[in-house]
Design a protein around this nucleic acid. Structure first.
Lengths: 148, 148
DNA sequence: CCACTTACTTGCAATGTGCAACAAATAACT
DNA sequence: AGTTATTTGTTGCACATTGCAAGTAAGTGG
Protein backbone atom coordinates (compact mmCIF):
# COMPACT_ATOMS: atom_id res chain seq x y z
CA UNK A 1 0.00 0.00 0.00
CA UNK A 2 2.99 2.25 0.42
CA UNK A 3 3.99 4.67 -2.23
CA UNK A 4 6.51 2.55 -4.05
CA UNK A 5 7.55 5.30 -6.39
CA UNK A 6 8.63 7.43 -3.45
CA UNK A 7 10.79 4.66 -2.07
CA UNK A 8 12.46 3.98 -5.37
CA UNK A 9 12.93 7.62 -6.21
CA UNK A 10 14.97 8.12 -3.09
CA UNK A 11 16.85 4.88 -3.53
CA UNK A 12 17.76 5.72 -7.11
CA UNK A 13 18.99 9.12 -6.10
CA UNK A 14 21.22 7.71 -3.41
CA UNK A 15 22.63 5.12 -5.77
CA UNK A 16 23.37 7.86 -8.23
CA UNK A 17 25.29 9.77 -5.61
CA UNK A 18 27.13 6.69 -4.52
CA UNK A 19 28.19 5.95 -8.06
CA UNK A 20 29.32 9.50 -8.61
CA UNK A 21 31.58 9.75 -5.59
CA UNK A 22 33.08 6.35 -5.65
CA UNK A 23 35.26 6.50 -8.69
CA UNK A 24 38.65 8.02 -8.11
CA UNK A 25 41.62 5.87 -7.35
CA UNK A 26 44.70 7.85 -6.49
CA UNK A 27 45.33 10.27 -9.31
CA UNK A 28 43.00 8.41 -11.66
CA UNK A 29 39.52 9.77 -12.01
CA UNK A 30 36.88 7.81 -13.86
CA UNK A 31 33.20 8.30 -14.44
CA UNK A 32 30.57 5.92 -13.16
CA UNK A 33 29.91 4.68 -16.68
CA UNK A 34 33.58 3.87 -17.07
CA UNK A 35 33.49 2.07 -13.75
CA UNK A 36 30.66 -0.10 -15.05
CA UNK A 37 32.70 -0.87 -18.13
CA UNK A 38 35.75 -1.90 -16.13
CA UNK A 39 33.56 -3.99 -13.90
CA UNK A 40 32.07 -5.95 -16.78
CA UNK A 41 35.34 -6.44 -18.62
CA UNK A 42 36.76 -7.85 -15.42
CA UNK A 43 33.80 -10.13 -14.91
CA UNK A 44 33.30 -11.58 -18.36
CA UNK A 45 35.81 -13.81 -20.08
CA UNK A 46 37.36 -12.49 -23.29
CA UNK A 47 34.42 -10.26 -24.10
CA UNK A 48 34.02 -8.44 -27.38
CA UNK A 49 33.02 -4.78 -27.55
CA UNK A 50 29.47 -5.64 -28.53
CA UNK A 51 29.09 -8.00 -25.61
CA UNK A 52 30.01 -5.40 -23.02
CA UNK A 53 28.02 -2.66 -24.71
CA UNK A 54 24.97 -4.92 -24.71
CA UNK A 55 25.39 -5.88 -21.08
CA UNK A 56 25.53 -2.27 -20.04
CA UNK A 57 22.77 -1.37 -22.48
CA UNK A 58 24.94 1.32 -23.99
CA UNK A 59 24.95 2.65 -27.51
CA UNK A 60 27.86 1.06 -29.35
CA UNK A 61 29.13 4.35 -30.71
CA UNK A 62 29.34 5.94 -27.30
CA UNK A 63 30.86 2.77 -26.02
CA UNK A 64 33.50 2.78 -28.73
CA UNK A 65 34.59 6.22 -27.69
CA UNK A 66 34.61 5.37 -24.01
CA UNK A 67 36.89 2.45 -24.77
CA UNK A 68 39.19 4.77 -26.66
CA UNK A 69 39.39 6.98 -23.60
CA UNK A 70 40.05 4.03 -21.31
CA UNK A 71 42.80 2.83 -23.62
CA UNK A 72 44.44 6.24 -23.53
CA UNK A 73 44.28 6.03 -19.76
CA UNK A 74 45.99 2.65 -20.04
CA UNK A 75 43.27 0.84 -18.17
CA UNK A 76 41.96 -1.30 -21.02
CA UNK A 77 43.50 -3.25 -23.86
CA UNK A 78 41.93 -4.10 -27.22
CA UNK A 79 43.14 -7.27 -28.91
CA UNK A 80 41.94 -8.30 -32.38
CA UNK A 81 40.18 -11.61 -32.31
CA UNK A 82 41.99 -14.41 -34.10
CA UNK A 83 38.84 -16.06 -35.37
CA UNK A 84 36.87 -13.01 -36.51
CA UNK A 85 38.80 -10.06 -37.80
CA UNK A 86 35.94 -7.64 -37.16
CA UNK A 87 35.97 -8.34 -33.46
CA UNK A 88 38.10 -6.89 -30.69
CA UNK A 89 38.57 -8.67 -27.40
CA UNK A 90 38.68 -6.41 -24.38
CA UNK A 91 40.80 -6.93 -21.32
CA UNK A 92 42.08 -4.93 -18.39
CA UNK A 93 45.67 -3.82 -18.14
CA UNK A 94 47.48 -4.40 -14.85
CA UNK A 95 46.61 -0.85 -13.89
CA UNK A 96 43.03 -1.35 -15.04
CA UNK A 97 42.71 -4.45 -12.94
CA UNK A 98 44.09 -2.53 -10.00
CA UNK A 99 41.59 0.28 -10.47
CA UNK A 100 38.69 -2.14 -10.86
CA UNK A 101 39.70 -4.02 -7.74
CA UNK A 102 40.15 -0.87 -5.73
CA UNK A 103 36.75 0.44 -6.73
CA UNK A 104 35.22 -2.91 -5.92
CA UNK A 105 36.78 -2.87 -2.49
CA UNK A 106 35.72 0.66 -1.69
CA UNK A 107 32.19 -0.06 -2.89
CA UNK A 108 32.02 -3.14 -0.73
CA UNK A 109 33.44 -1.21 2.18
CA UNK A 110 30.77 1.40 1.69
CA UNK A 111 28.06 -1.22 1.53
CA UNK A 112 29.42 -2.87 4.67
CA UNK A 113 29.20 0.47 6.39
CA UNK A 114 25.62 0.88 5.30
CA UNK A 115 24.74 -2.60 6.45
CA UNK A 116 26.44 -2.02 9.77
CA UNK A 117 23.40 0.04 10.71
CA UNK A 118 21.31 -3.14 10.68
CA UNK A 119 21.19 -6.26 12.77
CA UNK A 120 22.00 -9.68 11.35
CA UNK A 121 18.42 -10.56 10.61
CA UNK A 122 17.76 -7.32 8.80
CA UNK A 123 20.94 -7.67 6.77
CA UNK A 124 19.94 -11.06 5.49
CA UNK A 125 16.42 -9.95 4.76
CA UNK A 126 17.60 -6.97 2.77
CA UNK A 127 20.10 -8.99 0.76
CA UNK A 128 17.49 -11.61 -0.02
CA UNK A 129 15.03 -8.90 -0.99
CA UNK A 130 17.42 -7.32 -3.43
CA UNK A 131 17.94 -10.68 -5.05
CA UNK A 132 14.19 -11.08 -5.30
CA UNK A 133 13.88 -7.64 -6.78
CA UNK A 134 16.54 -8.30 -9.36
CA UNK A 135 14.83 -11.52 -10.35
CA UNK A 136 11.47 -9.84 -10.60
CA UNK A 137 12.87 -7.04 -12.72
CA UNK A 138 14.51 -9.51 -15.07
CA UNK A 139 11.17 -11.25 -15.50
CA UNK A 140 9.40 -7.99 -16.15
CA UNK A 141 8.22 -7.28 -19.65
CA UNK A 142 7.86 -3.54 -19.22
CA UNK A 143 11.38 -2.30 -18.90
CA UNK A 144 14.91 -3.28 -19.22
CA UNK A 145 14.64 -4.96 -22.58
CA UNK A 146 18.38 -4.57 -23.09
CA UNK A 147 18.88 -7.74 -21.12
CA UNK A 148 20.65 -8.41 -17.86
CA UNK B 1 28.51 -13.47 2.60
CA UNK B 2 27.19 -12.75 -0.86
CA UNK B 3 28.90 -10.35 -3.15
CA UNK B 4 26.93 -7.25 -2.34
CA UNK B 5 28.62 -5.16 -4.98
CA UNK B 6 27.42 -7.52 -7.67
CA UNK B 7 23.84 -7.26 -6.49
CA UNK B 8 23.90 -3.50 -6.35
CA UNK B 9 25.69 -3.12 -9.62
CA UNK B 10 22.91 -4.95 -11.42
CA UNK B 11 20.20 -3.16 -9.49
CA UNK B 12 21.68 0.24 -10.28
CA UNK B 13 21.91 -0.59 -13.93
CA UNK B 14 18.28 -1.64 -14.08
CA UNK B 15 17.17 1.48 -12.28
CA UNK B 16 19.12 3.53 -14.74
CA UNK B 17 17.33 1.86 -17.62
CA UNK B 18 14.00 2.29 -15.95
CA UNK B 19 14.60 5.97 -15.44
CA UNK B 20 15.68 6.42 -19.01
CA UNK B 21 12.65 4.88 -20.62
CA UNK B 22 9.99 6.24 -18.40
CA UNK B 23 9.96 9.87 -19.26
CA UNK B 24 7.92 10.78 -22.26
CA UNK B 25 4.31 11.89 -21.93
CA UNK B 26 2.55 12.32 -25.22
CA UNK B 27 4.61 14.70 -27.32
CA UNK B 28 6.62 15.89 -24.32
CA UNK B 29 9.98 14.30 -23.79
CA UNK B 30 11.91 14.96 -20.63
CA UNK B 31 15.14 13.61 -19.22
CA UNK B 32 15.31 11.60 -16.04
CA UNK B 33 16.96 14.52 -14.27
CA UNK B 34 14.09 16.73 -15.28
CA UNK B 35 11.65 14.11 -14.05
CA UNK B 36 13.36 14.21 -10.66
CA UNK B 37 13.03 17.97 -10.62
CA UNK B 38 9.32 17.87 -11.42
CA UNK B 39 8.85 15.21 -8.79
CA UNK B 40 10.45 17.29 -6.06
CA UNK B 41 8.72 20.52 -6.99
CA UNK B 42 5.45 18.66 -6.81
CA UNK B 43 6.30 17.14 -3.46
CA UNK B 44 7.70 20.10 -1.57
CA UNK B 45 5.66 23.15 -0.65
CA UNK B 46 6.73 26.46 -2.17
CA UNK B 47 10.34 25.37 -2.61
CA UNK B 48 13.11 27.72 -3.63
CA UNK B 49 15.63 26.83 -6.31
CA UNK B 50 18.33 26.09 -3.75
CA UNK B 51 16.05 23.76 -1.85
CA UNK B 52 15.31 21.57 -4.85
CA UNK B 53 18.88 21.65 -6.09
CA UNK B 54 20.06 20.52 -2.68
CA UNK B 55 17.52 17.74 -2.45
CA UNK B 56 18.60 16.36 -5.79
CA UNK B 57 22.25 17.03 -4.97
CA UNK B 58 22.64 18.92 -8.18
CA UNK B 59 24.99 21.78 -8.90
CA UNK B 60 23.02 25.00 -8.71
CA UNK B 61 24.33 26.29 -12.02
CA UNK B 62 23.23 23.23 -13.91
CA UNK B 63 19.99 23.34 -12.03
CA UNK B 64 19.38 26.96 -12.96
CA UNK B 65 19.70 26.07 -16.62
CA UNK B 66 17.46 23.03 -16.30
CA UNK B 67 14.79 25.20 -14.77
CA UNK B 68 15.12 27.62 -17.69
CA UNK B 69 14.50 24.72 -20.03
CA UNK B 70 11.51 23.50 -18.05
CA UNK B 71 10.06 27.01 -18.05
CA UNK B 72 10.43 27.19 -21.82
CA UNK B 73 8.59 23.89 -21.99
CA UNK B 74 5.88 25.46 -19.85
CA UNK B 75 6.10 22.84 -17.17
CA UNK B 76 7.48 24.99 -14.36
CA UNK B 77 6.83 28.49 -13.08
CA UNK B 78 9.23 30.77 -11.19
CA UNK B 79 7.70 33.31 -8.81
CA UNK B 80 9.80 35.87 -6.94
CA UNK B 81 9.50 35.44 -3.21
CA UNK B 82 7.81 38.30 -1.42
CA UNK B 83 9.96 38.07 1.68
CA UNK B 84 13.39 37.62 0.12
CA UNK B 85 14.03 39.26 -3.20
CA UNK B 86 16.91 36.93 -4.04
CA UNK B 87 14.70 33.88 -3.92
CA UNK B 88 12.46 32.35 -6.52
CA UNK B 89 9.65 30.00 -5.59
CA UNK B 90 9.14 27.09 -7.96
CA UNK B 91 5.82 25.56 -8.87
CA UNK B 92 4.38 23.33 -11.55
CA UNK B 93 2.13 24.67 -14.27
CA UNK B 94 -1.05 22.78 -15.00
CA UNK B 95 0.74 21.00 -17.78
CA UNK B 96 3.71 20.33 -15.50
CA UNK B 97 1.45 18.83 -12.88
CA UNK B 98 -0.09 16.66 -15.52
CA UNK B 99 3.28 15.43 -16.72
CA UNK B 100 4.46 14.75 -13.17
CA UNK B 101 1.30 12.84 -12.37
CA UNK B 102 1.47 10.82 -15.55
CA UNK B 103 5.06 9.84 -14.94
CA UNK B 104 4.21 8.93 -11.38
CA UNK B 105 1.41 6.71 -12.54
CA UNK B 106 3.43 4.94 -15.17
CA UNK B 107 6.28 4.41 -12.73
CA UNK B 108 3.91 2.95 -10.20
CA UNK B 109 2.37 0.79 -12.87
CA UNK B 110 5.79 -0.47 -13.80
CA UNK B 111 6.63 -1.21 -10.20
CA UNK B 112 3.33 -3.01 -9.76
CA UNK B 113 4.20 -5.14 -12.73
CA UNK B 114 7.57 -5.97 -11.22
CA UNK B 115 6.01 -6.83 -7.89
CA UNK B 116 3.42 -8.99 -9.58
CA UNK B 117 6.14 -11.58 -9.99
CA UNK B 118 6.21 -12.03 -6.22
CA UNK B 119 3.78 -13.41 -3.68
CA UNK B 120 2.27 -11.25 -0.97
CA UNK B 121 4.85 -12.16 1.61
CA UNK B 122 7.75 -11.43 -0.69
CA UNK B 123 6.24 -8.11 -1.70
CA UNK B 124 6.00 -6.93 1.86
CA UNK B 125 9.47 -8.15 2.70
CA UNK B 126 10.98 -6.34 -0.24
CA UNK B 127 9.19 -3.08 0.50
CA UNK B 128 10.22 -3.24 4.11
CA UNK B 129 13.78 -3.98 3.08
CA UNK B 130 13.98 -0.99 0.81
CA UNK B 131 12.80 1.20 3.62
CA UNK B 132 15.46 -0.29 5.84
CA UNK B 133 18.05 0.29 3.17
CA UNK B 134 17.05 3.90 2.71
CA UNK B 135 17.25 4.47 6.43
CA UNK B 136 20.64 2.82 6.65
CA UNK B 137 21.98 4.87 3.78
CA UNK B 138 20.75 8.08 5.34
CA UNK B 139 22.58 7.17 8.53
CA UNK B 140 25.73 6.37 6.63
CA UNK B 141 28.62 8.75 6.96
CA UNK B 142 30.47 7.62 3.86
CA UNK B 143 28.31 8.78 1.00
CA UNK B 144 25.39 10.85 0.20
CA UNK B 145 26.42 13.88 2.17
CA UNK B 146 24.06 16.02 0.10
CA UNK B 147 21.28 15.12 2.52
CA UNK B 148 17.96 13.50 1.97
C1' DC C 1 29.67 -13.37 -57.08
C1' DC C 2 26.21 -10.30 -55.06
C1' DA C 3 23.28 -9.01 -51.45
C1' DC C 4 22.86 -8.90 -46.53
C1' DT C 5 24.29 -8.77 -41.92
C1' DT C 6 27.57 -7.82 -38.18
C1' DA C 7 31.32 -5.28 -35.68
C1' DC C 8 33.21 -1.27 -35.09
C1' DT C 9 34.57 3.79 -36.20
C1' DT C 10 33.92 8.71 -37.27
C1' DG C 11 31.28 13.21 -38.10
C1' DC C 12 28.22 16.08 -36.56
C1' DA C 13 24.88 18.34 -33.22
C1' DA C 14 22.53 18.56 -28.99
C1' DT C 15 22.68 18.23 -24.17
C1' DG C 16 24.52 18.03 -19.50
C1' DT C 17 27.97 19.25 -16.50
C1' DG C 18 31.03 22.09 -13.17
C1' DC C 19 34.08 25.86 -12.10
C1' DA C 20 35.01 30.68 -11.97
C1' DA C 21 33.26 35.01 -11.99
C1' DC C 22 29.48 37.96 -11.51
C1' DA C 23 25.23 41.01 -9.65
C1' DA C 24 21.82 41.61 -6.28
C1' DA C 25 19.92 41.08 -1.87
C1' DT C 26 20.26 39.98 2.90
C1' DA C 27 22.63 39.06 7.35
C1' DA C 28 26.09 40.05 10.73
C1' DC C 29 29.28 43.04 13.10
C1' DT C 30 31.14 47.23 14.85
C1' DA D 1 24.47 53.63 9.97
C1' DG D 2 28.22 51.57 7.42
C1' DT D 3 31.16 48.03 6.12
C1' DT D 4 31.87 43.27 5.38
C1' DA D 5 30.47 38.52 4.73
C1' DT D 6 27.09 35.34 3.16
C1' DT D 7 23.42 33.63 0.38
C1' DT D 8 20.76 33.21 -4.07
C1' DG D 9 20.74 32.92 -8.44
C1' DT D 10 22.74 33.87 -13.27
C1' DT D 11 26.20 33.76 -17.07
C1' DG D 12 30.67 32.49 -19.71
C1' DC D 13 33.55 29.26 -20.84
C1' DA D 14 35.35 24.40 -21.60
C1' DC D 15 34.77 19.77 -21.69
C1' DA D 16 32.39 15.08 -21.28
C1' DT D 17 28.46 12.24 -22.84
C1' DT D 18 25.21 10.95 -25.87
C1' DG D 19 22.83 9.24 -30.24
C1' DC D 20 21.85 9.26 -35.09
C1' DA D 21 23.52 8.93 -39.75
C1' DA D 22 26.93 7.37 -42.53
C1' DG D 23 30.88 4.78 -43.54
C1' DT D 24 34.56 0.78 -43.69
C1' DA D 25 35.87 -3.80 -43.24
C1' DA D 26 34.85 -8.51 -42.55
C1' DG D 27 31.84 -12.44 -42.41
C1' DT D 28 27.41 -15.11 -44.12
C1' DG D 29 24.10 -16.94 -47.31
C1' DG D 30 22.15 -17.41 -51.30
Amino acid sequence: MDNKRELFQVLTRRFGLLNKNCCSVGAIDISSVQSHILYEIDKQTSPSMQQIADTIAMDITTFSRQIQTLIKMELVKKTPSSTDKRVFILSLTVQGKFVATTIDESMNAYLEEVFSHMNEFEKETVIRSIKLLNQAMSKSSVCCTPLL
